[in-house]
């Protein structure tokens, strides 16, 4: 599991790669919060297109970043969810707190 960051035009892009579970979520969270705090981006994009597995730890990851960003007045966008990851996220009503880019969803929304 890893995260790669790019920061351009006041937008922080976090490209997540690998499997997200309780074990891997902690280092991702620490690294991402570190970046958000140092860049203070207007917009943050969490890109899940490299994610091969995700359980409810992924929900916690998104909700936690959403809380941090809303304190700083930043917005959050989620892209690249696989149909499995989308199924998990939908249970949490993630579409209500972050903008979920449908175009980024692989394999359609089943």
């Amino acid at each position: 599991m890893s995260v790669k960051f790019t920061f351009e035009d006041d937008t922080l892009i976090c490209r997540l790669q690998g499997e997200i579970d309780h074990h891997t979520a902690l280092p991702i969270r620490l690294e991402t919060d570190d970046r958000i705090e140092s860049c203070r981006p207007a917009k943050t994009v969490m890109d899940f297109s490299g994610v091969t597995f995700m359980d409810s730890s992924g929900i916690g990851l998104v909700m936690g970043r959403y809380r941090l960003l809303s304190e700083m007045g930043g917005e959050l966008e989620i892209t690249g969810l696989s149909s499995n990851a989308y199924k998990v996220m939908r249970l949490a009503g993630i579409d209500r707190i972050a903008s979920v880019k449908k175009g980024g969803i692989k394999n359609g929304d089943k």
Partner: peptide, 22 residues
């Protein structure tokens, strides 16, 4: 119950909901 958790932090309280729906 959905969203019930005794841990807080980054736990969403959705583990049982995920198990039920999957």
């Amino acid at each position: 119950e959905p969203l019930f958790t005794t841990l807080g932090g980054d736990r969403a309280g959705l583990g049982f909901s995920v198990m039920e729906s999957f």
